[in-house]
Design a protein around this nucleic acid. Structure first.
Lengths: 229, 229
DNA sequence: CTACACAAGATTGTCAACAATCTGGCATGA
DNA sequence: TCATGCCAGATTGTTGACAATCTTGTGTAG
Protein backbone atom coordinates (compact mmCIF):
# COMPACT_ATOMS: atom_id res chain seq x y z
CA UNK A 1 0.00 0.00 0.00
CA UNK A 2 1.60 3.22 -1.13
CA UNK A 3 0.05 5.71 1.22
CA UNK A 4 1.97 8.85 0.56
CA UNK A 5 0.49 11.80 2.36
CA UNK A 6 0.49 13.86 -0.80
CA UNK A 7 -1.61 11.38 -2.75
CA UNK A 8 -4.13 11.00 0.04
CA UNK A 9 -4.66 14.73 0.16
CA UNK A 10 -4.99 14.94 -3.60
CA UNK A 11 -7.64 12.25 -3.42
CA UNK A 12 -9.46 14.13 -0.69
CA UNK A 13 -9.29 17.30 -2.74
CA UNK A 14 -10.84 15.59 -5.73
CA UNK A 15 -13.51 14.04 -3.58
CA UNK A 16 -14.55 17.39 -2.11
CA UNK A 17 -14.39 19.03 -5.50
CA UNK A 18 -16.64 16.37 -7.00
CA UNK A 19 -19.12 16.59 -4.15
CA UNK A 20 -19.58 20.32 -4.47
CA UNK A 21 -19.57 20.21 -8.24
CA UNK A 22 -22.19 17.46 -8.29
CA UNK A 23 -24.25 19.36 -5.77
CA UNK A 24 -24.32 22.34 -8.09
CA UNK A 25 -25.07 20.29 -11.20
CA UNK A 26 -27.92 18.50 -9.41
CA UNK A 27 -29.26 21.86 -8.25
CA UNK A 28 -29.06 21.04 -4.62
CA UNK A 29 -26.75 24.04 -4.52
CA UNK A 30 -28.46 26.76 -6.52
CA UNK A 31 -26.84 29.91 -7.93
CA UNK A 32 -26.11 32.44 -5.23
CA UNK A 33 -25.82 29.89 -2.43
CA UNK A 34 -23.07 30.84 -0.01
CA UNK A 35 -20.23 28.36 0.51
CA UNK A 36 -18.57 29.28 3.83
CA UNK A 37 -15.14 27.83 4.34
CA UNK A 38 -15.70 26.88 7.95
CA UNK A 39 -18.84 24.90 7.20
CA UNK A 40 -17.20 23.05 4.33
CA UNK A 41 -14.23 22.22 6.55
CA UNK A 42 -16.51 20.66 9.12
CA UNK A 43 -18.69 18.84 6.59
CA UNK A 44 -15.73 17.20 4.90
CA UNK A 45 -13.49 17.22 7.99
CA UNK A 46 -10.83 18.83 5.88
CA UNK A 47 -8.36 21.61 6.56
CA UNK A 48 -9.11 25.11 5.44
CA UNK A 49 -6.27 25.21 2.95
CA UNK A 50 -7.73 22.17 1.21
CA UNK A 51 -11.20 23.67 1.05
CA UNK A 52 -9.71 26.88 -0.19
CA UNK A 53 -7.93 25.16 -3.04
CA UNK A 54 -11.12 23.39 -4.05
CA UNK A 55 -13.01 26.67 -4.11
CA UNK A 56 -10.32 28.26 -6.24
CA UNK A 57 -10.49 25.39 -8.69
CA UNK A 58 -14.26 25.71 -8.90
CA UNK A 59 -13.90 29.44 -9.35
CA UNK A 60 -11.50 28.95 -12.20
CA UNK A 61 -14.15 26.94 -14.02
CA UNK A 62 -16.63 29.72 -13.34
CA UNK A 63 -18.87 27.40 -11.36
CA UNK A 64 -18.43 29.38 -8.17
CA UNK A 65 -17.64 33.04 -7.73
CA UNK A 66 -14.93 34.16 -5.29
CA UNK A 67 -15.71 37.59 -3.86
CA UNK A 68 -12.65 39.03 -2.09
CA UNK A 69 -13.11 39.12 1.66
CA UNK A 70 -16.71 38.08 1.21
CA UNK A 71 -16.51 34.39 0.53
CA UNK A 72 -17.56 32.06 -2.24
CA UNK A 73 -21.02 31.64 -3.72
CA UNK A 74 -22.38 29.42 -6.47
CA UNK A 75 -21.98 31.45 -9.65
CA UNK A 76 -24.95 33.35 -11.04
CA UNK A 77 -24.48 34.00 -14.76
CA UNK A 78 -25.72 37.37 -15.95
CA UNK A 79 -27.84 37.73 -19.09
CA UNK A 80 -24.82 38.94 -21.03
CA UNK A 81 -22.79 35.95 -19.85
CA UNK A 82 -25.69 33.73 -20.83
CA UNK A 83 -25.58 35.08 -24.35
CA UNK A 84 -21.84 34.49 -24.58
CA UNK A 85 -22.09 31.02 -23.08
CA UNK A 86 -24.65 29.83 -25.59
CA UNK A 87 -22.78 31.44 -28.45
CA UNK A 88 -19.57 29.77 -27.32
CA UNK A 89 -21.37 26.48 -26.91
CA UNK A 90 -22.69 26.53 -30.45
CA UNK A 91 -19.24 27.29 -31.80
CA UNK A 92 -17.49 24.64 -29.74
CA UNK A 93 -20.04 21.92 -30.09
CA UNK A 94 -20.34 22.50 -33.83
CA UNK A 95 -16.61 21.93 -34.21
CA UNK A 96 -16.65 18.96 -31.85
CA UNK A 97 -19.49 17.17 -33.57
CA UNK A 98 -17.77 17.53 -36.93
CA UNK A 99 -14.64 15.97 -35.52
CA UNK A 100 -16.69 13.26 -33.82
CA UNK A 101 -18.24 12.36 -37.17
CA UNK A 102 -14.75 11.83 -38.56
CA UNK A 103 -13.56 9.58 -35.76
CA UNK A 104 -16.63 7.71 -34.49
CA UNK A 105 -16.33 3.94 -34.73
CA UNK A 106 -19.33 1.57 -34.76
CA UNK A 107 -18.54 0.82 -31.11
CA UNK A 108 -18.76 4.53 -30.33
CA UNK A 109 -22.13 4.74 -32.02
CA UNK A 110 -23.31 1.77 -30.00
CA UNK A 111 -22.27 3.56 -26.85
CA UNK A 112 -24.24 6.63 -27.83
CA UNK A 113 -27.29 4.51 -28.61
CA UNK A 114 -27.10 3.00 -25.16
CA UNK A 115 -26.92 6.50 -23.79
CA UNK A 116 -30.06 7.40 -25.76
CA UNK A 117 -31.76 4.39 -24.24
CA UNK A 118 -30.87 5.47 -20.73
CA UNK A 119 -32.22 8.93 -21.53
CA UNK A 120 -35.46 7.45 -22.79
CA UNK A 121 -35.96 5.51 -19.60
CA UNK A 122 -35.14 8.47 -17.39
CA UNK A 123 -37.76 10.52 -19.22
CA UNK A 124 -40.44 8.23 -17.84
CA UNK A 125 -38.94 8.10 -14.36
CA UNK A 126 -39.31 11.13 -12.18
CA UNK A 127 -35.79 11.53 -10.85
CA UNK A 128 -35.40 15.13 -11.88
CA UNK A 129 -31.74 15.70 -10.97
CA UNK A 130 -30.75 12.51 -12.76
CA UNK A 131 -32.56 13.66 -15.87
CA UNK A 132 -30.89 17.03 -15.77
CA UNK A 133 -27.48 15.43 -15.62
CA UNK A 134 -28.26 12.97 -18.38
CA UNK A 135 -29.03 15.78 -20.75
CA UNK A 136 -25.48 17.02 -20.31
CA UNK A 137 -24.00 13.55 -20.43
CA UNK A 138 -25.03 12.95 -24.02
CA UNK A 139 -23.35 16.13 -25.18
CA UNK A 140 -20.17 15.34 -23.30
CA UNK A 141 -20.05 11.81 -24.70
CA UNK A 142 -20.28 13.15 -28.23
CA UNK A 143 -17.54 15.63 -27.40
CA UNK A 144 -15.28 12.86 -26.20
CA UNK A 145 -15.48 11.19 -29.59
CA UNK A 146 -13.83 14.21 -31.17
CA UNK A 147 -10.53 13.01 -29.73
CA UNK A 148 -9.45 16.46 -28.62
CA UNK A 149 -9.11 16.84 -24.85
CA UNK A 150 -8.69 20.60 -25.06
CA UNK A 151 -11.93 21.33 -26.88
CA UNK A 152 -13.64 18.68 -24.79
CA UNK A 153 -12.62 20.40 -21.56
CA UNK A 154 -13.78 23.75 -22.84
CA UNK A 155 -17.15 22.23 -23.59
CA UNK A 156 -17.27 20.65 -20.14
CA UNK A 157 -16.90 24.08 -18.62
CA UNK A 158 -19.51 25.59 -20.90
CA UNK A 159 -22.00 22.81 -20.28
CA UNK A 160 -21.56 23.25 -16.54
CA UNK A 161 -22.29 26.92 -16.90
CA UNK A 162 -25.35 26.10 -18.97
CA UNK A 163 -26.62 24.01 -16.07
CA UNK A 164 -26.25 27.05 -13.87
CA UNK A 165 -28.25 29.09 -16.34
CA UNK A 166 -31.01 26.52 -16.43
CA UNK A 167 -31.04 26.45 -12.64
CA UNK A 168 -31.35 30.23 -12.61
CA UNK A 169 -33.88 30.81 -15.35
CA UNK A 170 -35.80 27.54 -15.32
CA UNK A 171 -36.48 26.83 -11.66
CA UNK A 172 -38.85 24.01 -12.63
CA UNK A 173 -36.03 22.41 -14.56
CA UNK A 174 -38.16 21.57 -17.57
CA UNK A 175 -35.64 22.92 -20.03
CA UNK A 176 -33.89 19.67 -20.74
CA UNK A 177 -32.73 18.48 -24.13
CA UNK A 178 -35.20 16.80 -26.44
CA UNK A 179 -34.52 13.12 -26.76
CA UNK A 180 -35.45 12.94 -30.46
CA UNK A 181 -33.01 15.63 -31.44
CA UNK A 182 -30.21 13.66 -29.82
CA UNK A 183 -31.25 10.59 -31.78
CA UNK A 184 -31.08 12.53 -35.04
CA UNK A 185 -27.54 13.62 -34.27
CA UNK A 186 -26.46 10.07 -33.59
CA UNK A 187 -27.93 9.00 -36.92
CA UNK A 188 -25.81 11.59 -38.72
CA UNK A 189 -22.73 10.56 -36.82
CA UNK A 190 -23.28 6.96 -37.81
CA UNK A 191 -23.23 7.97 -41.48
CA UNK A 192 -20.14 10.05 -40.89
CA UNK A 193 -22.17 13.06 -41.95
CA UNK A 194 -20.49 15.77 -39.94
CA UNK A 195 -22.13 18.64 -41.78
CA UNK A 196 -25.66 17.58 -40.99
CA UNK A 197 -24.73 16.50 -37.47
CA UNK A 198 -23.38 20.00 -36.91
CA UNK A 199 -26.51 21.54 -38.39
CA UNK A 200 -28.79 19.49 -36.16
CA UNK A 201 -26.66 20.26 -33.13
CA UNK A 202 -26.83 23.97 -33.88
CA UNK A 203 -30.61 23.84 -34.20
CA UNK A 204 -30.82 21.79 -31.05
CA UNK A 205 -28.83 24.36 -29.11
CA UNK A 206 -30.73 27.30 -30.55
CA UNK A 207 -33.90 25.57 -29.45
CA UNK A 208 -32.53 25.09 -25.94
CA UNK A 209 -31.52 28.74 -25.67
CA UNK A 210 -34.81 29.97 -27.06
CA UNK A 211 -36.66 27.86 -24.53
CA UNK A 212 -34.87 29.67 -21.75
CA UNK A 213 -34.93 33.12 -23.28
CA UNK A 214 -38.65 33.04 -23.88
CA UNK A 215 -39.30 32.72 -20.21
CA UNK A 216 -36.89 35.40 -19.11
CA UNK A 217 -36.63 37.80 -22.02
CA UNK A 218 -34.02 40.15 -20.68
CA UNK A 219 -33.03 39.81 -17.05
CA UNK A 220 -32.30 37.35 -14.31
CA UNK A 221 -35.06 36.80 -11.77
CA UNK A 222 -34.71 39.72 -9.44
CA UNK A 223 -35.31 39.55 -5.74
CA UNK A 224 -38.62 41.27 -6.43
CA UNK A 225 -39.72 38.47 -8.73
CA UNK A 226 -38.56 35.81 -6.35
CA UNK A 227 -40.71 37.31 -3.63
CA UNK A 228 -43.66 37.31 -5.97
CA UNK A 229 -44.14 41.08 -5.94
CA UNK B 1 -5.90 56.68 -1.07
CA UNK B 2 -7.69 53.44 -0.48
CA UNK B 3 -4.84 51.16 0.43
CA UNK B 4 -6.54 48.02 1.58
CA UNK B 5 -4.09 45.24 2.15
CA UNK B 6 -6.15 42.89 0.05
CA UNK B 7 -6.03 45.09 -3.02
CA UNK B 8 -2.32 45.65 -2.74
CA UNK B 9 -1.68 41.95 -2.65
CA UNK B 10 -3.96 41.35 -5.61
CA UNK B 11 -2.01 43.96 -7.51
CA UNK B 12 1.25 42.28 -6.56
CA UNK B 13 -0.11 38.95 -7.64
CA UNK B 14 -1.06 40.29 -11.05
CA UNK B 15 2.32 41.95 -11.40
CA UNK B 16 4.20 38.74 -10.70
CA UNK B 17 1.87 36.78 -12.93
CA UNK B 18 2.41 39.18 -15.79
CA UNK B 19 6.17 39.16 -15.35
CA UNK B 20 6.45 35.40 -15.51
CA UNK B 21 3.91 35.13 -18.29
CA UNK B 22 5.70 37.75 -20.35
CA UNK B 23 9.00 36.04 -19.70
CA UNK B 24 7.60 32.84 -21.14
CA UNK B 25 5.99 34.55 -24.14
CA UNK B 26 9.22 36.38 -24.92
CA UNK B 27 11.12 33.10 -24.64
CA UNK B 28 13.38 34.29 -21.93
CA UNK B 29 11.87 31.41 -19.99
CA UNK B 30 11.89 28.46 -22.36
CA UNK B 31 9.84 25.25 -21.96
CA UNK B 32 11.21 23.01 -19.25
CA UNK B 33 12.79 25.85 -17.25
CA UNK B 34 12.42 25.25 -13.54
CA UNK B 35 10.58 27.88 -11.51
CA UNK B 36 11.63 27.36 -7.86
CA UNK B 37 9.38 28.98 -5.32
CA UNK B 38 12.19 30.25 -3.15
CA UNK B 39 13.93 32.03 -5.99
CA UNK B 40 10.72 33.65 -7.19
CA UNK B 41 9.99 34.82 -3.65
CA UNK B 42 13.34 36.53 -3.45
CA UNK B 43 13.19 38.00 -6.95
CA UNK B 44 9.80 39.58 -6.37
CA UNK B 45 10.21 39.96 -2.61
CA UNK B 46 6.88 38.25 -2.20
CA UNK B 47 5.62 35.65 0.20
CA UNK B 48 5.56 32.00 -0.74
CA UNK B 49 1.80 31.78 -0.68
CA UNK B 50 1.58 34.57 -3.22
CA UNK B 51 4.11 32.94 -5.51
CA UNK B 52 2.30 29.66 -5.10
CA UNK B 53 -1.00 31.16 -6.16
CA UNK B 54 0.60 32.71 -9.21
CA UNK B 55 2.08 29.36 -10.20
CA UNK B 56 -1.28 27.68 -9.79
CA UNK B 57 -2.90 30.27 -11.98
CA UNK B 58 -0.25 29.81 -14.65
CA UNK B 59 -0.70 26.06 -14.36
CA UNK B 60 -4.41 26.37 -14.90
CA UNK B 61 -3.73 28.08 -18.21
CA UNK B 62 -1.32 25.29 -19.09
CA UNK B 63 1.56 27.70 -19.38
CA UNK B 64 3.46 26.06 -16.55
CA UNK B 65 3.31 22.49 -15.33
CA UNK B 66 2.99 21.74 -11.61
CA UNK B 67 4.63 18.44 -10.73
CA UNK B 68 3.63 17.32 -7.23
CA UNK B 69 6.52 17.58 -4.80
CA UNK B 70 8.82 18.43 -7.67
CA UNK B 71 8.05 22.02 -8.37
CA UNK B 72 6.90 24.04 -11.34
CA UNK B 73 8.44 24.17 -14.80
CA UNK B 74 7.53 26.05 -17.95
CA UNK B 75 5.17 23.73 -19.81
CA UNK B 76 6.50 21.59 -22.64
CA UNK B 77 3.68 20.58 -24.99
CA UNK B 78 3.94 17.06 -26.35
CA UNK B 79 3.41 16.30 -30.05
CA UNK B 80 -0.09 15.01 -29.30
CA UNK B 81 -0.90 18.17 -27.36
CA UNK B 82 0.47 20.17 -30.26
CA UNK B 83 -1.92 18.46 -32.64
CA UNK B 84 -4.85 19.19 -30.32
CA UNK B 85 -3.80 22.78 -29.73
CA UNK B 86 -3.64 23.60 -33.43
CA UNK B 87 -6.89 21.79 -34.09
CA UNK B 88 -8.56 23.70 -31.27
CA UNK B 89 -7.09 26.93 -32.52
CA UNK B 90 -8.51 26.46 -36.00
CA UNK B 91 -11.93 25.70 -34.57
CA UNK B 92 -11.93 28.62 -32.15
CA UNK B 93 -10.40 31.19 -34.41
CA UNK B 94 -12.69 30.22 -37.28
CA UNK B 95 -15.70 30.89 -35.10
CA UNK B 96 -14.20 34.08 -33.71
CA UNK B 97 -13.33 35.59 -37.05
CA UNK B 98 -16.88 34.94 -38.32
CA UNK B 99 -18.27 36.76 -35.32
CA UNK B 100 -15.73 39.54 -35.74
CA UNK B 101 -16.89 40.05 -39.32
CA UNK B 102 -20.41 40.57 -38.05
CA UNK B 103 -19.48 43.13 -35.42
CA UNK B 104 -16.46 45.00 -36.76
CA UNK B 105 -16.98 48.74 -37.13
CA UNK B 106 -14.90 50.96 -39.41
CA UNK B 107 -13.03 52.11 -36.30
CA UNK B 108 -12.19 48.50 -35.49
CA UNK B 109 -10.85 47.97 -38.99
CA UNK B 110 -8.74 51.10 -38.61
CA UNK B 111 -7.30 49.68 -35.43
CA UNK B 112 -6.38 46.44 -37.16
CA UNK B 113 -4.76 48.36 -40.02
CA UNK B 114 -2.63 50.22 -37.52
CA UNK B 115 -1.69 46.89 -36.04
CA UNK B 116 -0.65 45.68 -39.49
CA UNK B 117 1.48 48.74 -39.86
CA UNK B 118 3.25 48.06 -36.57
CA UNK B 119 3.84 44.50 -37.72
CA UNK B 120 5.30 45.71 -40.98
CA UNK B 121 7.75 47.96 -39.18
CA UNK B 122 8.77 45.26 -36.72
CA UNK B 123 9.56 42.93 -39.62
CA UNK B 124 12.38 45.24 -40.63
CA UNK B 125 13.59 45.78 -37.10
CA UNK B 126 15.46 43.00 -35.41
CA UNK B 127 13.79 42.88 -32.03
CA UNK B 128 12.96 39.21 -32.14
CA UNK B 129 10.88 38.88 -28.96
CA UNK B 130 8.81 41.88 -29.93
CA UNK B 131 8.13 40.35 -33.30
CA UNK B 132 7.07 37.08 -31.76
CA UNK B 133 4.58 38.83 -29.51
CA UNK B 134 3.22 40.97 -32.32
CA UNK B 135 2.29 37.89 -34.28
CA UNK B 136 0.02 36.83 -31.44
CA UNK B 137 -1.30 40.34 -30.88
CA UNK B 138 -2.97 40.52 -34.25
CA UNK B 139 -4.88 37.32 -33.65
CA UNK B 140 -5.99 38.42 -30.20
CA UNK B 141 -7.16 41.78 -31.51
CA UNK B 142 -9.31 40.09 -34.11
CA UNK B 143 -10.66 37.82 -31.39
CA UNK B 144 -11.64 40.78 -29.27
CA UNK B 145 -13.84 42.09 -32.05
CA UNK B 146 -16.01 39.00 -31.77
CA UNK B 147 -17.50 40.46 -28.62
CA UNK B 148 -17.43 37.19 -26.72
CA UNK B 149 -15.10 37.20 -23.71
CA UNK B 150 -15.40 33.46 -23.19
CA UNK B 151 -14.22 32.42 -26.63
CA UNK B 152 -11.67 35.21 -26.52
CA UNK B 153 -10.15 33.86 -23.31
CA UNK B 154 -10.03 30.36 -24.69
CA UNK B 155 -8.13 31.67 -27.67
CA UNK B 156 -5.77 33.57 -25.39
CA UNK B 157 -4.87 30.35 -23.69
CA UNK B 158 -4.45 28.50 -26.96
CA UNK B 159 -2.30 31.24 -28.47
CA UNK B 160 -0.08 31.18 -25.39
CA UNK B 161 0.37 27.47 -25.78
CA UNK B 162 1.19 27.98 -29.43
CA UNK B 163 3.98 30.29 -28.38
CA UNK B 164 5.32 27.50 -26.21
CA UNK B 165 5.21 25.15 -29.17
CA UNK B 166 7.09 27.59 -31.34
CA UNK B 167 9.67 28.04 -28.59
CA UNK B 168 10.07 24.27 -28.40
CA UNK B 169 10.10 23.33 -32.05
CA UNK B 170 11.41 26.50 -33.66
CA UNK B 171 14.37 27.56 -31.54
CA UNK B 172 15.34 30.19 -34.13
CA UNK B 173 11.91 31.70 -33.81
CA UNK B 174 11.41 32.13 -37.52
CA UNK B 175 7.95 30.62 -37.50
CA UNK B 176 6.04 33.82 -37.18
CA UNK B 177 2.86 34.71 -38.99
CA UNK B 178 3.04 36.05 -42.51
CA UNK B 179 2.17 39.71 -42.67
CA UNK B 180 0.35 39.46 -46.01
CA UNK B 181 -2.02 36.79 -44.81
CA UNK B 182 -3.06 39.03 -41.93
CA UNK B 183 -3.75 41.83 -44.38
CA UNK B 184 -6.00 39.56 -46.43
CA UNK B 185 -8.04 38.70 -43.38
CA UNK B 186 -8.52 42.36 -42.51
CA UNK B 187 -9.73 43.02 -46.04
CA UNK B 188 -12.39 40.34 -45.66
CA UNK B 189 -13.43 41.67 -42.28
CA UNK B 190 -13.83 45.13 -43.76
CA UNK B 191 -16.31 43.76 -46.31
CA UNK B 192 -18.11 41.87 -43.56
CA UNK B 193 -17.20 38.70 -45.40
CA UNK B 194 -16.98 36.25 -42.50
CA UNK B 195 -16.87 33.15 -44.69
CA UNK B 196 -13.78 34.17 -46.59
CA UNK B 197 -12.16 35.63 -43.52
CA UNK B 198 -12.61 32.26 -41.83
CA UNK B 199 -11.25 30.46 -44.88
CA UNK B 200 -8.16 32.64 -44.99
CA UNK B 201 -7.65 32.26 -41.26
CA UNK B 202 -7.89 28.50 -41.56
CA UNK B 203 -5.32 28.45 -44.36
CA UNK B 204 -3.12 30.81 -42.40
CA UNK B 205 -3.17 28.51 -39.37
CA UNK B 206 -2.62 25.37 -41.41
CA UNK B 207 0.39 27.09 -42.94
CA UNK B 208 1.72 27.98 -39.49
CA UNK B 209 1.31 24.42 -38.24
CA UNK B 210 2.85 22.93 -41.35
CA UNK B 211 5.83 25.21 -40.98
CA UNK B 212 6.46 23.78 -37.54
CA UNK B 213 5.59 20.20 -38.30
CA UNK B 214 7.91 20.09 -41.28
CA UNK B 215 10.87 20.79 -39.08
CA UNK B 216 10.00 18.37 -36.32
CA UNK B 217 8.01 15.64 -38.03
CA UNK B 218 7.14 13.58 -35.01
CA UNK B 219 8.88 14.33 -31.74
CA UNK B 220 10.09 17.07 -29.50
CA UNK B 221 13.83 17.72 -29.41
CA UNK B 222 15.20 15.11 -27.07
CA UNK B 223 18.07 15.69 -24.73
CA UNK B 224 20.21 13.74 -27.18
CA UNK B 225 19.37 16.16 -29.98
CA UNK B 226 19.92 19.17 -27.80
CA UNK B 227 23.41 17.95 -26.99
CA UNK B 228 24.11 17.49 -30.68
CA UNK B 229 24.59 13.72 -30.47
C1' DC C 1 33.58 -1.10 -12.22
C1' DT C 2 28.76 -1.29 -11.50
C1' DA C 3 24.67 -1.41 -8.82
C1' DC C 4 22.48 -0.46 -4.88
C1' DA C 5 21.42 1.70 -0.43
C1' DC C 6 21.63 5.43 2.46
C1' DA C 7 21.90 10.12 4.15
C1' DA C 8 22.22 15.28 3.86
C1' DG C 9 20.51 19.20 1.83
C1' DA C 10 17.17 21.45 -0.73
C1' DT C 11 12.46 21.92 -2.15
C1' DT C 12 7.62 21.51 -1.78
C1' DG C 13 3.21 20.57 1.01
C1' DT C 14 0.34 21.43 5.16
C1' DC C 15 -1.42 23.48 9.07
C1' DA C 16 -2.66 26.51 12.81
C1' DA C 17 -2.27 30.99 14.71
C1' DC C 18 -2.67 35.78 13.73
C1' DA C 19 -4.26 39.89 11.02
C1' DA C 20 -7.51 42.22 8.08
C1' DT C 21 -12.08 42.73 6.53
C1' DC C 22 -16.99 42.45 6.38
C1' DT C 23 -21.80 42.03 8.42
C1' DG C 24 -25.45 43.13 11.36
C1' DG C 25 -27.10 45.14 15.44
C1' DC C 26 -27.20 48.83 18.76
C1' DA C 27 -26.80 53.30 20.45
C1' DT C 28 -26.81 58.17 19.63
C1' DG C 29 -28.56 62.42 18.00
C1' DA C 30 -31.09 65.25 14.81
C1' DT D 1 -38.80 58.21 13.10
C1' DC D 2 -34.82 58.03 10.51
C1' DA D 3 -30.02 58.48 9.43
C1' DT D 4 -25.39 57.91 11.01
C1' DG D 5 -21.46 56.01 13.42
C1' DC D 6 -19.47 52.46 15.90
C1' DC D 7 -18.64 47.98 18.02
C1' DA D 8 -18.68 42.82 18.43
C1' DG D 9 -18.89 38.58 16.19
C1' DA D 10 -18.08 36.06 12.24
C1' DT D 11 -15.57 35.28 8.06
C1' DT D 12 -11.77 35.52 5.04
C1' DG D 13 -6.66 36.49 4.00
C1' DT D 14 -1.70 35.85 5.21
C1' DT D 15 2.27 34.25 7.23
C1' DG D 16 5.81 31.42 9.22
C1' DA D 17 6.96 27.13 11.29
C1' DC D 18 6.93 22.28 10.73
C1' DA D 19 6.36 17.88 8.04
C1' DA D 20 6.83 15.19 3.92
C1' DT D 21 9.14 14.42 -0.28
C1' DC D 22 12.61 14.56 -3.70
C1' DT D 23 17.47 15.13 -5.44
C1' DT D 24 22.09 14.24 -5.33
C1' DG D 25 26.38 12.84 -3.59
C1' DT D 26 28.83 9.25 -1.14
C1' DG D 27 30.01 4.81 0.40
C1' DT D 28 29.79 -0.13 0.30
C1' DA D 29 29.24 -4.74 -1.42
C1' DG D 30 29.24 -7.79 -5.15
Amino acid sequence: MDERVTEESLEAENRIYARIFDGIMDRRLTPGTKLPERELCELFSASRSLVRRVLQRLAHYHVVELRPNRGAIVATPTPEETRQIFQARRALEGALVRLAAQHATPADIDGLRQQLHVEHEAMHGSDQPAWARLASTFHLRVARLANNAILENYLKEIVSRCSLIVALYEPQGNAACEHDEHAGIVACLERGDGENAARLMEEHLVELERHICLRQPDARPSLKDRLGL
